[in-house]
Design a protein around this nucleic acid. Structure first.
Lengths: 252, 252
DNA sequence: CGCGGAGTTGATGACCATCAAGAATGGTGG
DNA sequence: CCACCATTCTTGATGGTCATCAACTCCGCG
């Protein structure tokens, strides 16, 4: 009884279930996935700080916004577009930890230098404020401090969920969870465009480009996703979803 | 030129190299791995807080110290023994994010409830202080606040390193890195006892118990580790280490 | 001595990375 | 407008790594 560990008990769980953990797996952190977040929370202390003072920047696709090792002196708010937060290992392997989109914060860190690189995926507009200013404001406004800590903690949880997903789930399920989480923040029933290419997705989910492509084909063939072209997808309103038409598994 | 991504350029790097990233891969965070840390940093604001007021607890092996979902109202300092910080997925898969040992902090979080479970691996002694007290002290002592943020940021980096290691490295290399990091905090040339069992290691490194066992045998056969019994190991002073006797790879 | 748990080792198959080649897409210039 | 090329995406074939099932050893304990 004292060692109830892996995969000994409950095994037959539908791996396609989206809601409970899956939706939290990917780093859309500032706002809980329940809220559609067509626009970010404008009432938070951080957001109001960005509204009063900030400097707007434009970045071309694939340009570097901030580089691993640079001084961590700025905090960004994504106004439009998508950025990727990544590191590159010594072997040249890239790992994308997070895609940040409209309304999300990038650059909350307790360190002097960045420990990752941020690049623009498509055309990106950000608002920037100096970090010193934020920290200074924290002294006056404890709720701002709390917001920052909550943000870091959410990031931490996000990484831990990703770690779990890495060990647990198979390639096509991981892709499906990623797409679900991506779609969750847009309530539209229309097709959703993926700003990032297959390689970005591969480096985010820890698989090869070919496997990503195969997983797309697989999901499409099984009717789990609806693929208009390579970068426009839709998740069917679980017509045949969440329970396969052919009852493959069944609880014993 | 604009898309230098994975594994295209530099490929032939010795996967056994311990120092640069490997040593940082596993979550011994409060103190940099350079310092042997036979005893923790007693000068930090957090530590002096623990010295002035704290409540000592004892925990039996495999007992739960704090449970996922409980109110996050306490911060712990490990005095002796080893704890594991983990979550269990819906499928029953356990993921151990971190082993925390003597001198390390557990329970720094920006959330109201714990997002993971902490269990004792062996006999564990901790000092506990209420979180509210720490946060209260932060108002007076900005260096304490900074320490907390640095701690969270270090945790975040640790998870990201683990993610990278998951995608990049193979089983036996991951095990070797884990053992290296574990040994790094004890400068002794003697055998080092692993407090945790094979299953714990497996759930930490994301592989099966059998693979862990095979990786141990493999490392032993190759002379990378020296295994007295199942839980006592030593890393040879790179007699044949860090460069394989047979020059398998070579930079082109 | 028998028992149970932890660790090891072997055999098999699943999954995925890799290599390779073919389709689709987009941009450029005639 | 179309031909051409480059890039991205897709699909096929193959092999490596590792999870799984199973048997066996080792050790402590009643």
């Amino acid at each position: 009884m004292k060692d109830m560990t892996t995969s000994d008990q409950c095994r037959n769980i539908d791996p396609w279930d989206q809601s409970p953990i899956a939706a939290l797996c990917y780093g859309h952190v500032a706002h809980p996935p329940a809220r559609p977040a067509a626009q970010p929370d404008t009432t938070s202390p951080m957001m109001s700080l960005f509204r009063t003072i900030s400097h707007t920047q434009h970045h071309q696709p694939d340009s570097t916004i901030m580089l691993h090792g640079d001084a961590a002196d700025t905090i960004y708010l994504i106004v439009s577009g998508t950025v990727r937060c990544c590191t590159i290992s010594e072997e040249g392997q890239r790992q994308i930890f997070r895609f940040a989109r409209k309304g999300e914060l990038v650059g909350i860190a307790g360190m002097q230098t960045w420990h990752f690189t941020v690049e623009a995926v498509d055309h990106v507009i950000v608002k920037a404020i100096p970090r010193a200013l934020v920290e200074h404001s924290c002294a006056d406004d404890p709720s701002l401090l709390q917001e920052l800590q909550a943000h870091m903690c959410a990031q931490l949880q996000s990484r831990e969920k990703q770690l779990l997903a890495f060990m647990t789930t198979k390639a096509s399920v991981r892709l499906f969870q990623f797409l679900s989480a991506f779609a969750a923040s847009r309530p539209t029933a229309d097709y959703i465009a993926l700003p990032m290419c297959r390689r970005d997705i591969a480096d985010h989910l820890g698989m090869s480009v070919e496997t990503v492509s195969r997983a797309f084909s697989d999901l499409k063939a099984k009717g789990r996703i609806d693929l208009a072209c390579a970068e426009k997808f839709r998740i069917p309103k679980r017509a045949g979803n969440a329970k396969p038409a052919t009852p493959a598994f069944r609880l014993a």
